[in-house]
Design a protein around this nucleic acid. Sequence first.
DNA 1: GTCATAGTTTTCGTATACGATTTCGTACTC
DNA 2: GAGTACGAAATCGTATACGAAAACTATGAC
Lengths: 235, 235
Amino acid sequence: MTDTASTAAILSGNGASGSKSEQAYATVKSRIVDGTYSPGYRLVLAKIAEDLGVSVVPVREAIRRLEAEGLVTFERNVGATVSGIDPTEFLYTMQTLSIIEGAATALSAPLIGAADVARARAVNAEMRECLQHFDPVRFTALNQDFHSILFEHCPNPHILDLVHRGWNRLASLRSSTFRFVPGRAHESVDEHEALLQLIEAGAGADTIEKAARLHRSATLDAYLAQSNAGSLSAH
Amino acid sequence: MTDTASTAAILSGNGASGSKSEQAYATVKSRIVDGTYSPGYRLVLAKIAEDLGVSVVPVREAIRRLEAEGLVTFERNVGATVSGIDPTEFLYTMQTLSIIEGAATALSAPLIGAADVARARAVNAEMRECLQHFDPVRFTALNQDFHSILFEHCPNPHILDLVHRGWNRLASLRSSTFRFVPGRAHESVDEHEALLQLIEAGAGADTIEKAARLHRSATLDAYLAQSNAGSLSAH
DNA sequence: GTCATAGTTTTCGTATACGATTTCGTACTC
DNA sequence: GAGTACGAAATCGTATACGAAAACTATGAC
């Protein structure tokens, strides 16, 4: 995710590759994802156009594409704003994501080799270390990595696409840190190990999916219990 | 689905409502969905613009939005074509759809009242009739209705959105009929009844989801077994 | 002080124009 | 006859310009 954002930033930096419409799309998207444009931010076509040194037509096109992805809201003759995400929205997005990620993990499982499991274990070990010298930022980044390893062999491109969209949707809430819950972190690491063992044992897709989804749900529940729902929108 | 298409067609007919960009979007989408523009169809901006009586700018915008939805493929300096769907793609789309629909059904289940179950039963009864005086077109339409009833209370808007996107994606394959498999139809009706009973009994989400998904998967498998995979792309 | 209204400003919406890129057909060479 | 090079046509890409809609502001009446 951070990778995607920085890649887009680099692209927008040199600006040499792709059409201007493409550049506008990538840049605005990355700015939404990295929080430069936070929810509610008013996206004025002319300003963005000037900022990027292009005319409004490609910017307009980019904004509409982002709208189709759910990252911005567009209103006729009024303009575009970065999509906000209220507590209910947040819950629904997380719920959807846990379903999709569960499926992605289950579909990947048969294709995950010993090397991948080893990699995932290494990541998990690092997460355990992060718990000792309290480092929530790194912990959550590693958490993302861990699950990415489990997804990466998913043969169904639609599912992977949905996973990414979901995370993009949540990105403006600082996805890299919002899932850290101290009390939950220890269990989380243990659940990761359990998940890896299920995969190694060649458990059925149902079992793996359920485990993956429950794990994600539990993390979400813990997060919600910690921060009262009201503060979500202020994030 | 048919409803959506005809609505869009009506909108494009009077063309009075919404912006021209919106009109272009709705019209092109409906034409893709209803098969007027079938997979591989070359979408030439200028021609569509002329056809709709607008300039190319709003058409271009509409096409890019459709690209973000996966309905068209766009290549720089070359143009847009209606996304084809090869047998593998088809499988992945159906797989994704069965996951999403299973989840949608499970999430709806607690909110489905006796009246809804009765409606669904009525639809199912009609389906049974269709089997007697062989009417596959109506059968598949009713099948769609049946599942829609089960979805409609789904509180998670993202999931519903994904369901619709999935069906749009498949629409150019004549979604209204491609799922009819004579040998499978009878079982299908029985499974519907079983699903309704699970819902009435207040079964757990897991059980309902699994049942719904398995049902869809079985239908897909039967369909694939019937038509050899090669003919899919020609549809 | 509050509300309504008219005028101004901002911003969007799209048509048009022109440059850039690709594609396709034709002629020429080997 | 096959392959290549060149040129014309088709098509995309975007800047600019102007019209339309909404939002904002100031003014005046009550």
